[in-house]
Structures are given as C-alpha cells and as structure tokens.
Computed example of a mutant assay.
Amino acid sequence: MKVLVVKLHALGDLVIATPALRRLRDGLPDARIDLLTTSWCAPVLMNNPLIDRTVVIENDIFFKPRPNTVVPFLRLVHRLRREDYDSAVIFHRHRLVELFIRLAGIPRRFYFDGDNTHNSVHLDERRHSALTAWELADLAVRELGGDRAAVPFLEDLKYEWHISPDEMESADAILTSFGLTAGGFAVLLPGGGVNPNISNTERRWPVDRFVELAGRIEGELGLRIVLAGAENDREVADWMESSSNRPLINLCGMYDLRITAAIFKRSGLIVCNDSGPLHIAAGVGAPVVGIFGPTSQKQKLPPGGTSVAACRDIPCRPCYFSVFKGCIFDSIRCMEELTAEEVMSAVLTVRKNVKKSA
C-alpha cells in the first residue's frame, strides 16, 4: 500500500501533525508513507522514520499560482500519477490542493471538511490542532484496514523532531564557542509569524517587553540569554540586542533550521511568540513558554507540562483562527497589555514542571 501525506505549510503546523503521522505509521506498518511538502517546510521531517520519502516542491505552485507555475503543476500531477498511490491524507482545506490530488488519480482521499463524512473530519478551530490531525489520520487508518487504536488524551500526543548526531555535534561546537553549557542558557525569539505565504506580526509581543524579560531571566535564574530566529527576524533581534543593558548572544539568522533546533535541545528555556519555534521546541523536548495574543493557546499550545502559555485573557480573544481580520481596538491589547511579570510567571511555572518530571 502506498499513502501520500499532503502537508505543504507551515513549519509549526507540520510539527503539530507529527502525532498524526505516528498514528499512520503505527496503524499501517507495512505501508509506504510519503510526504508531499514545500522546500521551506521539508527540513521539519528530515531524519524522521515516520516518513519513507519526501516529495519536495516549490511553494509558488499552490500558494502563489501564476502562468509560469502551470507547467510545474502539471509535471507534478504526472509524476504522482506514475507513483500510483492508493490513498492520500490531506492536512489542508485548500481547493487547489484538493483539485490537484484528484488530477493525480489517487482513488482514496481523506481530508478536512465542514462536516464529518466517511472520508473526512470536521476541522473545528475550537479544538486542538494536533488532536484534529490525529483524528484524520485515525480515520484513514481505519478505512484502509489498519490497526485500530483508542482515541488518546491530548497530553499523550507527542511532537517529534529527530536530530542527527552530526547536527548535535555542530550545535555543541557553536555553544562551546560562545562559552555556553547545556541547560545554562535561555533562547528568546522576539520575531516569528512570517513565512513565504503570510506575515502575521500581530502575533509578536512588544520587543521592549522581551528586553525586560531577558533581564529578569538572567538576574533571577542565572541563565545567559541567546537570541534566535530566521533571517527575516534579524531586524527585531538586532533592536533587542542594542536596547539591552546586558550582553546578549545574538544568533538570529546565523544558522539553518536544523542546527537551530539542535541548539534548542540544549537550552534550559525557550520563550517565543506563537509561531514555528514554539512547536519545534516541543518537538526536541525543550521547556518552552509560548506567548499568545490573537491566537488561541487551547488550539496551538503543545501538549504536556513542559509547554506553558503566557497570555492576557480579555473577552475578545482569541480572534485569530484561519486569518486575522483586525483588532477592534486601536492596538492589539492582548499583546500590548501582557506584562513581563506575567510572562515571567509562566517561565517559573514551566521550570517547576520540568523539575517535577525529572
């Protein structure tokens, strides 16, 4: 049996889907399971035994279609037709993606829809994304004659990010060059919310609060502060570094996603906005505080006690589900009013949880 998993974006969402991929692998142990994803998301599942092969495509084919993407689109259809897949599990609600799978001639398709059917699962944005994805994978396994499984509790779903020995060795060399030891530093990511398809900077907590938080973490916990993020986060990280009265180690944009994840694994704490690094941190088993504003921690906070949300609950939040339609106030109050004291409280909670589980 050959199964094609379709998950084209985004980084964090692909990590969230790893418990669902685990369900597919465990339920269909003899199947060949391939992943179709974009070039900027492909690093998420490198070294991961849940996937047999990754088919990598360029982002523009589906998300920025133009006349010059028609030929690559048709070539991809032809390529997948030759593979003769038995089924596809589509972790999207996207009309062009659904049309593409039909054109690829894959006879059995499992997907998210507005209503439950024999081959779809209702995409309820009030429920946790990992659990909804697991249910879609479970549906596919059952319909394809695979092994049955009990529906798990949310806290039993574990994200997976597999780090190779070479990646870990490279990360350790970087940390040594900066005089950092395992567990002796905190990684702060003041950026996030930007990828090739969207720019959601409304997810970002004000940078001056990150500066204040960095001082408290270093002063109260004795952890050195490391800044990280993608190349497009460099400006905000540089501003934070220049605004701090303490020395910060700014690694933002210096290393690729795989090495950055390995650095996460060695950290004693990660604090970031609701974005990809939140889920990567959970995948490598690092203690993480996720800062939530317009988005919902009930939908996106990684399961387990080593992931804690920091948020200011006001009546209008969450207001960001599939898209952000703007704030009813002049500023995004759920972010603007969230204090460093409140985030520090979440930091202390996650540190306490880590000690309990040790």
Rank of each mutant, 00 (worst) to 15 (best):
T339R: 04
V347S: 07
T339M: 02
V343N: 05
S331H: 13
C316Q: 08
K325D: 13
S331K: 13
G326L: 09
E336T: 09
Y320L: 05
P315A: 03
F321E: 09
M344S: 03
F324K: 01
S331T: 15
G326D: 10
F329M: 07
E342K: 06
S331A: 12
M335S: 09
A346P: 10
F329W: 14
A340N: 08
C316P: 08
G326P: 09
G326R: 06
L338K: 01
A346M: 01
S345T: 14
V343T: 12
E337R: 04
S322M: 12
F324T: 00
S322C: 08
R317E: 00
T349F: 08
R317K: 11
F324N: 05
L348V: 10
I328R: 15
S331P: 08
C334I: 00
V347I: 07
T349Q: 14
T339W: 06
R317T: 03
V343W: 05
C334V: 00
M344L: 13
T349W: 05
A346N: 01
D330P: 10
S322I: 11
V350H: 07
A346D: 04
T339E: 07
R317V: 02
C319N: 03
Y320A: 00
C334L: 02
V350F: 10
V323E: 12
A340F: 05
E337N: 11
E336H: 07
Y320P: 00
V323W: 04
P315V: 06
V323M: 08
I332N: 06
Y320E: 03
F324V: 06
C316K: 08
D330L: 13
R317N: 07
E342Q: 14
V323D: 11
R333W: 13
E341H: 12
L348P: 04
V350E: 03
I328Y: 12
V347M: 07
F321W: 14
F321G: 04
D330A: 15
Y320V: 00
V323T: 15
I328L: 14
F329Y: 15
E341M: 08
C334Y: 01
A340P: 05
M344E: 02
C327E: 11
D330E: 15
Y320K: 01
V350P: 06
C327L: 10
M335Q: 13
I332E: 05
